[in-house]
Design a protein around this nucleic acid. Structure first.
Lengths: 213, 213
DNA sequence: TTCTATTATTGGGCTCAGTACAATATTACG
DNA sequence: CGTAATATTGTACTGAGCCCAATAATAGAA
């Protein structure tokens, strides 16, 4: 634990935080793709290797908030005893995690997507998060439903739930400064997959005046 | 179109096919991660650059069948006129595409996952396919429902559907030689997300004897 | 058959992410 | 103050992906 506190006045900031900030600046200045790890570490005042002490990939720094949320979700899911209503518990656990996230904790990858040019480059790394969360949920569902992890039902449900959570994050971020709490978006997305696409899409079609053309 | 047919007896095989075969061999021999593009092209008898004439990434060769299926799905979805039942048309289009796929057309990434070591390395590239298909479906749903492409309902539904298709492919591949037609797996996966997770998971729980512990 | 425009293939060079490993600095703690 | 644990750095390397110009092969016209 080298860089935690200092004897003198200002507490020295951790290398990790310095790297995160330097990366955020450079991504906004030069886009994600055109920023090299060497540039990040130079601005942060550390060596290139130090970057890899804290992140396993350049894209990791884009998803700090999301990774933390997934970590917390994993803890929540593990704490749920067997035999409870899987879907209800899943929803509750997600909302518990998400309710602690302020409206300013937008993952770097989802902020100013246009200026950072983070449309396609970061898509893949975001999908890795979707997959990790999907795995967590699949394990949880398999346990709750007494089914195998590679069961089609389990995997489909886990994918749908993880996807819904992902979409909620995205739309929340896209809504800009005036965005409502993340939990509200999360609830909506859960409703869609919980009640089923046939009713969700059907209701959506009915609720709209049939636009010609 | 240089290497299509030859005057003499055996028609010379296209560079693309040769590369695909060489890659498949090497992935099985040395795993995906330990196979370099240079090795592939050497065995195929072409130069390294020729690889990039046919594939934009090393992982592309793992998903040839899936990419073709997604291309066909795109065509099918574009051909559907407005105003039809979005979910029913989506299901029908998917089944049309998938019914043409023989039980031996398993994407390379999903065959012998253990021996190829294609568990984690290829996960990400597979997710890129999920995302591309998700985009296609979102466009289609937005058109059918007269909603925006970045609408939460549209995105959630598209994600769930694309995920279900992805899961169907995976479970189908995992079922080995005795696997049933892909369309059957696809139908099952569609049912899960169509009827809704609350009923799907609820029904699943009811249909099982409550296993103790 | 010969010429020509098109397309496929190749060679060379280059950037940069990610890895490995050993050496050194820094911190915490007894 | 000494020492063990941890953080940081230096150096070197592999391999994917990209760029661009040069060359080979092909199809089609004449």
């Amino acid at each position: 634990m080298p860089a935690s506190q200092n004897a003198v006045g200002r507490p020295r900031r951790s290398s990790r935080a310095v790297i995160e900030d330097a990366a955020a600046e450079l991504f906004l200045e030069n886009t994600y793709a055109l920023t090299t790890i060497e540039q990040i570490t130079q601005r942060a005042g550390v060596s290139r290797n130090t970057f890899f002490n804290y992140f396993t990939a350049k894209s990791d720094v884009l998803w700090v908030e999301l990774d933390a949320a997934i970590d917390r979700l994993a803890v929540e899911l593990r704490a749920i005893p067997n035999g409870r209503s899987a879907l209800a518990e899943m929803r509750a656990a997600t909302l518990r995690v998400v309710s602690q996230i302020g409206v300013d904790r937008v993952p770097l990858a989802l902020t100013q997507v246009d200026v950072m040019g983070t449309a396609e480059e970061t898509r893949v790394s975001g999908l890795a998060r979707l997959a990790r969360r999907s795995d967590l949920i699949a394990d949880f569902l398999a346990r709750q439903l007494s089914r195998r992890c590679d069961d089609l039902l389990v995997l489909s449900a886990a994918n749908a739930l993880s996807g819904a959570i992902s979409v909620a994050w995205t739309v929340w971020a896209l809504d800009g400064i005036g965005r409502r709490p993340l939990a509200e978006y999360m609830s909506e997305a859960f409703d869609v997959v919980s009640t089923g696409l046939s009713s969700a899409l059907g209701a959506a079609a009915e609720s709209l005046a049939p636009l010609p053309e």
